[in-house]
Design a protein around this nucleic acid. Structure first.
Lengths: 171, 171
DNA sequence: AGCAGCTATTCTAGTACTAGAATAGCTTCC
DNA sequence: GGAAGCTATTCTAGTACTAGAATAGCTGCT
């Protein structure tokens, strides 16, 4: 039984505590999770019904199966799958494909001065992103949460270094 | 006019030289592009018709609009969009969401010894990936191609460093 | 009671692929 | 000429979201 990263994100929040859809979005915002996951508001309900149809979560609480807000809790299977999938996500590095690589492959088509400008613009935006991620890091976060933001910051720093080197090389 | 990274990849190869679908796959394999783009064989024809429907490429060559192999060449508009999109891809860092982050968020659910094992497994696979990317780097690549593989290697190295630090911290 | 303006969910109509099977055309070699 | 086995394209039926509009329920105020 496989879950996508988006499904795992919600499933994890529900294991933590049963919640309803709207609440999930609030938690995602509060914790700055949009910095490291890609879950639009409009996807939440879609994902919830998918998880329910697969028997990983179920409606719970007094108002279960009634109208109005629907609180979901993980099933036993849901908890099992969640732990399993989290372990898997950590153990297995999944390659990721930043669009810049495709851009770089097409460099010869870009006039040199525009290329230099594009690289400079990237350097600026990267610096902004770094401060954003730092700002989004919850202040009193436990080490395992800090690790998430550290990972992002490490990747950003590596890209900054790569970029500086490349800009140097081009001039 | 916006193109996706997948579309830009193919469009770029066609700007370089007109080609047919099957040939595109061969080039992608030869150049080790599967290390830095995500284009399945089955997507190539889908993407080609999409690009053609948008007027960015057209059938060219003697056999144009006939049976058998169909060679596509970029239109003037296609070249323009390609250069534009490449510049954009370089200038604009698009955040990327590696599944490990979602895994890390769910760490408390994983028994400590399994977590340690998962991190160790990741370290191993990461090392393998590094050698793979190195192996896929074309030997006599011009600097702008080398930059692509360097970028990937820099990200991998940063992740290895992050991981080592985190493993240390956990023990 | 009646309405404003939240909170919360559902629905419609997309986009962007993707796996894999089916089909068609080309070449070679007996 | 006809079968083997490539090369090359098309087709079918998915998956995984996603934007945005529509709807429904709830709460407080007058």
């Amino acid at each position: 039984m496989d879950v996508t990263p988006a499904e795992l994100t919600l499933l994890g929040l529900l294991v933590e505590r049963p919640r309803h859809g709207y609440e999930l979005d609030e938690v995602i915002v509060e914790r700055g999770m949009r910095e490291w996951t890609e879950i639009g508001f409009s996807s939440i309900y879609y994902l919830l019904t998918k998880l329910r149809d697969r028997g990983l979560i179920e409606e719970a609480g007094e108002r279960a199966h009634g109208k109005g807000r629907k609180v979901f809790a993980p099933t036993a299977e849901g908890r099992r799958v969640c732990a399993q999938a989290a372990e898997e996500a950590i153990a297995e590095p999944r390659p990721v494909f930043p669009p810049i690589l495709v851009g770089l492959a097409n460099q010869p088509m870009i006039p040199p001065d525009r290329l230099r400008a594009a690289l400079a613009r990237r350097a600026e935006t990267l610096a902004v992103r770094v401060t954003e991620v730092r700002a989004a890091t919850p202040a009193d976060a436990p080490p395992f949460v800090r690790a998430i933001f550290d990972h992002s910051l490490a990747q950003l720093a590596a890209e900054q270094a790569w970029l500086a080197r490349y800009q140097e090389e081009m001039s």
